[in-house]
Amino acid sequence: MKKNFTILIIIIALAIIVTILLLGFKPTTEQFKDADGNIIEESIAIIEEVELGNMKQWITIRGKDTSNPVLLWLHGGPGSPQMSLAHELDGKLEEEFIVVHWDQRGAGKSNHSDFDDQTMTVNQFKNDAIDLIKYLQKRLNKDKIYLLGHSWGSQLGIELVNDSPEYFYAYIGVSQVVDSHRGVKIAYDWLLEEIQHNNDQTSLNKLAKIGVPPYSHSQYRDFAQLVNLYGGNLDIHLSKLALISVKAPEYTFLDYYHLINGMNRGGAPLHQNGEMLSINTIKEIPSVEIPIFFFNGKNDYNTPLVLVEEYLEMIKAPQKDLIIFNHSSHTPFLKENDKFSEKIINIKEQMDF
C-alpha cells in the first residue's frame, strides 16, 4: 500500500512538472509573420503589465496592421477574462482591428496573490477602464476606439459610453445587461417551464431549494448553474473552454491558479451584504451620443433577448441595431464565431472615416 502511494505521488509530481514545462514560466504572445516567417513590420503583438487605478494589470495588444482602429474588449464575470481564449477566437478581428484584451482587477493574470477584493467596485472598474483607454490612445496614437462589452462588461461598457462618449467611435454590447431583477424573473419562469416539461424532478427540487427571485449573490450562482444546464447560458462545455484556455501562451502555470480563483470569487465583492446589484439601464441610460450595436443569442436567459429588444426600442442613439444569433445563448462569440467576427467588421466598414 505504501509503495503504491509513493508511486502515485511520483506520478502526480511528474504530471505537475510536465504541465509547468508545457505552459511555461513567462507569458508570450504569438507574432504576426509573413509567408517567409518574418515578423510583419506594421503589426503589433505584445503582452504587458500596465498600471491602472494604482494597480498593475495585464493586457494584450494584437493586430496585423497598426493603422487599424482599436477594439477594446471588456470581459464578463467579473472574473471571466477572454485573454486565454483570444488565440482561438480573434483571428479575423486581428486582421481588421488592434484587439485589446484586459484581465480586469481580480481576474486572471490581474488576480494577484495580495489582491484586495474590496477594491472591486463599479466606480473603480470604470476608472481603471478610463486609465487603460488613455494609455492606448497614447501608446497607439489613436483619438478614439471601438468598445465591446460582454455580460458584466456590457454593464461597465454602457456606463463608460454614457459618461465619456468622447473616447469612442461606437459601442458593441454583447449579451447586454438591461434590468437585472426582471432578467432573473424572466429566466426563472422559462427555467421552471423547461424543467416541468422535461419531468426533471431533481432539477425541480434544486430550484425549489433556491427559491424564487430576487436572489442573493450565492443563490444566483446556484440558479445560474441550472440555467446553464438547460442551455440558457454558456454555449460550449466548460471542459472545451479549458482545453482552449490551456493552449494560450499568454498564460503561465501560476496564471491558471489565479484565473480559477478569480472565477470562483466572481462578482461577490460588488454585492453588499450578498444582495444582487439592481441594474436598470432603461431608466438610468435612456440615450447615448454614439452609435450602439447589441449582439444577443436567441436562447440567452442570462441576459434575456426580450429585454435587449425592449432596450433597443426605447434608447435614443445616432445609430442603433440588434444582431440576433439564432443558435447561441449567452456567448455567441463561442457558438457562432465566424458570424460574430463578420458582424463586428461590418460595423467598422459602416463607420470608416
Rank of each mutant, 00 (worst) to 15 (best):
V174T: 09
G274E: 04
N205G: 10
P81Y: 00
D103A: 08
Q272F: 11
I260R: 14
N38E: 03
T303Q: 06
K335R: 15
I324Y: 00
M120R: 05
I158D: 12
A13G: 12
T19F: 08
E193L: 10
E194F: 01
H330M: 06
E310T: 10
Q118R: 15
N38M: 04
D34L: 05
S67G: 08
E336A: 08
S278A: 11
I20S: 11
M120K: 08
T6H: 08
F115I: 13
L191D: 10
A187R: 15
H237W: 09
V212M: 12
T303L: 09
G297K: 02
Y167H: 15
G266T: 01
T6V: 15
N299R: 08
I210V: 12
E336L: 05
K138L: 06
V99Q: 07
I133H: 01
F25M: 12
L14G: 09
E49C: 13
H330D: 02
N199A: 00
L226D: 02
P81R: 05
D222W: 09
P165W: 02
G77C: 07
I7P: 05
D255G: 04
E313W: 00
W58K: 15
T202C: 05
S203C: 06
I210T: 08
N302G: 04
L85Q: 04
I46H: 00
I7C: 07
P81W: 01
K142G: 02
E49M: 12
E166V: 02
D200Q: 01
I20V: 13
I59C: 03
M351R: 12
D117V: 14
N273L: 07
V100S: 01
L8C: 10
T66N: 04
I315F: 10
K26V: 11
K348R: 12
G53Y: 01
I145E: 01
Q137I: 04
G24V: 01
E41R: 07
E94K: 06
M263I: 15
D200T: 03
Q219Y: 03
W190Q: 13
I172S: 08
H101I: 05
H327T: 14
Q124L: 10
K142A: 06
N199G: 10
G183N: 08
R105A: 06
L89F: 01
G266H: 01
W73F: 14
N264M: 09
Y215M: 03
G37C: 03
H150Y: 01
V308T: 15
E284I: 05
M120H: 08
S80E: 14
T60K: 04
